[in-house]
Computed example of a mutant assay.
Amino acid sequence: MLKLEWLRMPQQTAYGCLYCQTAASFKGDTARMPKTCPTLTHEEIAKDIQGYREEPLKTLMQKADRTPFTPDGVLRNRVEELIFFAQEMGYHKIGIAFCVTLMPEAQTLAKLLREEGLEAIPVCCRVGAVDYSEIDLPKAHPERFAAICNPVAQAKLLNLAQCDLVVQVGLCLGHDIILQQTCQAPVTTLVVKDRVLDHNPVRALRG
Rank of each mutant, 00 (worst) to 15 (best):
P201G: 15
V123A: 10
L118P: 00
M9K: 15
Q107E: 04
L7A: 08
A24I: 05
L190D: 13
K27P: 12
Q87G: 12
A185G: 06
V187R: 03
T39V: 03
M89K: 07
P38H: 06
T39I: 01
Q62T: 08
E55V: 02
F84W: 12
V100P: 00
A147T: 02
E54N: 14
L197D: 05
G95F: 01
V123C: 05
F145R: 04
Q168T: 14
F145I: 03
Q107N: 10
V192E: 04
D48W: 04
E116A: 11
I148G: 04
C125N: 09
A86G: 07
E54G: 03
T39E: 15
Q184Y: 06
A185M: 02
F69W: 06
R53Q: 02
H141T: 11
I178S: 11
V169L: 15
L160I: 09
T108V: 06
R32D: 09
F98Q: 04
A129N: 15
R8V: 02
K63P: 03
A86E: 09
K35L: 13
A120E: 03
N77P: 06
L57Q: 10
C149L: 10
V187W: 05
A161G: 02
E43H: 10
H42K: 10
C183L: 01
G73K: 00
A147M: 05
A64T: 03
C99F: 04
L160N: 15
G170A: 15
A14T: 00
Q107H: 12
G128V: 05
K3W: 02
A120N: 09
T67M: 07
L197Y: 13
Q168W: 05
R114E: 15
Q21N: 15
T30Y: 14
R195T: 01
C37P: 08
R53A: 11
A106S: 04
A185Y: 00
D164S: 04
L75C: 07
C124N: 08
L82W: 02
A120F: 03
T67P: 00
